[in-house]
Design a protein around this nucleic acid. Structure first.
Length: 428
DNA sequence: TCTGGGGTCCTAGGACCC
DNA sequence: TCTGGGGTCCTAGGACCC
């Protein structure tokens, strides 16, 4: 049996821990650049604030009902996430916890007898809440997909379920599948939903009863087959042990459109530094670097797809002479790529740096600059240690610049309560 | 006027090899 | 006039997730 433990309105919950006056009032958290709504409390949901909707559209509603407004504070959420996951590991054992995203973990419950499942799930819920202040919902079932389904039910019927739903019998699973629209299943997105509905498949139960061979032909091949197996209670998606990322990226919208090459270069250098840091944190090196920029050219884009919000993406990549994790070795090619992509007179909305061809750092072949490299490696470690302990980028490369014309908007940001001494929560 | 920022897995099709 | 059959590796793009 698997549990999925999912934090309720995670970003909102994190903000409320440090500002309890918002506990019973509607709150929302905005994406970078204060662009759209990426977390909303139940109260905000009830007011009709749309998830992932643009802030400017929800603004009248937000102002009318005095909804609490927060810019995203990833330093805080990252740290709170660690606390939640550590609590789960403490209760279930390190190896039985698979962190799935910043606010969700799967927990393997094979060590529990059937009649202890609910009790243990409740213990997970209560302990996380007591130790971190973050409320969670728990779904338990024989497969990951069904556990996600159970979790959806726990969240939807919070009061009846006390945020914990266990589907341990065929009967309960069937009932849950019958009341769940197929589009709500884990792994069924908008495209597949439409396709399934057109074929007269509307509920999870309808899909569960389709033949596997049909899924192989009509539902994304092996992906569809796995989904149906999982719905029937056959494990097809197993616990994932930790693996290094195969691609690491930093991409951002600019606060305002940017036209100067100097600004683009500065942004690309900063993103490269941030990406290299992520790379070193998992002890990897990258063999390829890809830089892209997005303009705001509008012509003809809307006609093709009315949802197009920005212009075309221009991208280019360089295969590095040898894999590296050093910021200085990555910034040079990144800047060269930015220069190559830049066109005078265009307006740029966004840029990004993507590292791939990722290998373990200790597997890097020795090269002529071995000695120089080890010095560089030492330097990188020092910079990382300083930056990590300060949870910001205190030490920067000169090419990252200091003006930051392109920096994003964050008008409602809260302090980094848990990662900066001088931003600690004060109790008066 | 104003619409995140990451990731993963899979498939199809081209290039190339024997 | 007649023109195989496998196999691998790579890339682009689709679909999905949070």
């Amino acid at each position: 049996m698997y549990a999925i433990v999912d934090c309720n309105s995670f970003y909102c919950s994190c903000e409320r821990v440090f500002q309890p006056k918002w506990d019973d009032r509607p709150v929302v958290v905005l994406s970078n650049n204060d662009g759209c709504i990426i977390s909303r409390s139940d109260e905000a949901k009830d007011l009709g604030v749309e998830m992932a909707g643009p802030y400017f559209i929800a603004k009248p509603l937000i102002e009318k009902y005095n909804v609490g407004l927060f810019s995203s504070n990833y330093n805080l959420y990252g740290d709170m996430s660690m606390r939640v996951m550590d609590t789960l590991r403490h209760l279930a054992g390190d190896r039985n916890v698979e962190v799935y995203s910043v606010d969700e973990s799967f927990v393997n419950l094979f060590f529990l007898p059937q009649n202890k499942l609910r009790e243990f799930a409740m213990e997970l819920r209560h302990t996380v809440e007591r130790w971190t202040g973050v409320a969670v919902s728990v779904g338990v079932a024989p497969t990951k997909t069904l556990a996600k389904l159970a979790n959806g039910i726990a969240k939807k019927y919070k009061r009846q379920t006390e945020c914990v739903a266990v589907l341990e019998t065929g009967e309960k699973i069937a009932k849950a599948l019958r009341i769940t629209p197929v589009g709500k299943l884990w792994g069924v997105g908008g495209r597949s939903q439409k396709k399934l509905n057109d074929l007269g498949i509307h509920t999870g139960w309808d899909l569960r009863n389709m033949p596997e061979e049909w899924a192989r032909k009509n539902l994304g091949g092996v992906v569809g087959v796995r989904l149906i197996k999982e719905l029937r209670g056959e494990e097809a998606i197993v616990m994932d042990t930790y693996e290094d990322k195969k691609m690491i990226a930093t991409t951002r919208m600019f606060g305002n459109a940017v036209t100067a090459l100097a600004d683009i270069k500065e942004a690309v250098a900063t993103y490269t530094a941030r990406t290299a840091e992520k790379l070193r944190r998992q002890n990897s090196a990258a063999g390829m670097i890809n830089v892209f920029v997005v303009t705001n050219e509008k012509e003809n884009r809307k006609a093709v797809n009315p949802h197009f919000r920005h212009g075309p993406t221009y991208s280019s990549h360089i295969v590095l002479p040898y894999p590296t994790s050093q910021t200085n070795e990555l910034i040079k090619p990144a800047i060269a790529l930015a220069e190559k992509l830049y066109r005078e007179g265009k307006q740029y909305k966004k840029a990004g740096v993507v590292l791939s061809g990722i290998v373990p750092d200790d597997a890097i072949q020795a090269n002529m600059f071995e000695q120089q490299k080890s010095i560089g490696r030492f330097l990188m470690e020092q910079i990382d240690n300083i930056n990590f302990s300060m949870r910001g980028d205190v030490v920067k490369f000169a090419s990252s610049g200091t003006k930051r014309n392109w920096k994003m908007r964050q008008d409602f940001q809260t302090p980094r309560y848990t990662t900066r001494w001088n931003e600690l929560c004060k109790v008066s």
